[in-house]
Design a binder for these strands. Structure first.
Lengths: 175, 175
DNA sequence: GTCATTAGTGAGTGATCACTTACAAATGTA
DNA sequence: TACATTTGTAAGTGATCACTCACTAATGAC
């Protein structure tokens, strides 16, 4: 990966996240990255390839994000770490743009990518089973739906306070 | 509202919902509606105006959807009716496309439109208070986040089974 | 040092975009 | 019937789109 290749990816990530994939022109990406437009097509073949390269990074980043949780054996710690994912996703501006794009792109591509969250689903199910829930899989899924809903709000609603609902869930699950 | 005006709106709704706003050209809308492209601009001024007309319809439809719930006084019935919204939203293809667009458009416009769901939030809060929840507002919000997360999955994941989680919540709230 | 490969440029390309304009058909009103 | 207004069309418009091409600069292998 050359320096200019990375500059293209970073510029594309930022623009796709904030303006949308379809709404971002390749000329805009090139300008922001400080390279000629032709170079994008040399390295990524076409605009779709550029997007796929970013999504590819996403697959790896999500594994890293979940790795810590999947290995955890203490059930309450699994829940605690899950509720802390939101903070991890938005530690800095680059990460925030990255994860926002992951949420945003779902609707432009019309693909949820459920396999990506499956490891988390399994970890949560095991944890909730240990904690004595009757239907741990359904409870895990409801928690994940709520998390997705909260995250959506966080990215779309400027003044959204994510702290309060997270703390509420913290209390609710007695963590 | 002339016949052709409605045809334009319906064609636009369908295309915007399935292809996206930015990705849908005005010529495509005209072709699908069976009118000349110029007529779109005569009636709706520009492409943005066409979208706004659809969103306007959304504001009214959401009020109708919630009206029944807001007037309900029995707390459990409020919860039951809330969980049944999902079915109401997808009674027929036109409705499904309409509500899908409402979800989809949020990410293209980057606006959540929290005022639209406020009446439901209030109704749920009152209901959960009556049922003795410590923090009924937070509980109401978590339920709404979960609902949003479920609906997102429903629209993006072809084989998503919305029935099971709804039934789980039904049991959980003892309805 | 030579030569093949890769990285990078910048000026194109046709296609498509949202939108305009000039004009005709339909409709309402007296 | 006369005429003003609204509804509708078809053929444009310049701008912008994703992408290509001919070319040069840099790098690596021997």
């Amino acid at each position: 990966m050359t320096e200019k290749q990375e500059k293209i990816l970073n510029a594309a990530l930022d623009l796709f996240a904030h303006e949308g994939f379809k709404a971002t022109s390749t000329s805009k990406v090139a300008k922001k990255a400080g390279v000629s437009e032709g170079l994008i097509f040399r390295h990524f073949e076409n605009k779709e390839g550029l997007l796929q390269a970013i999504i590819q990074q996403g697959e790896e980043k999500i594994k890293v994000l979940f790795a810590d949780i999947v290995l955890e054996t203490d059930p309450k710690e699994v829940l605690r770490k899950t509720l802390q994912i939101g903070q991890k996703m938005n530690q800095n501006e680059a990460d925030a743009a990255f994860w926002k794009l992951q949420y945003k792109i779902k609707w432009e591509l019309e693909i949820y990518g459920e396999h990506k969250v499956e490891p988390l689903e399994r970890a949560l199910t095991v944890a909730l089973e240990k904690l004595g829930y009757d239907d741990p899989l359904q409870e895990a899924r409801i928690l994940m739906y709520a998390f997705d809903g909260m995250t959506t709000r966080f990215y779309l609603q400027d003044d959204f306070d994510i702290q309060t609902p997270v703390e509420y869930l913290w209390k609710k699950y007695d963590l």
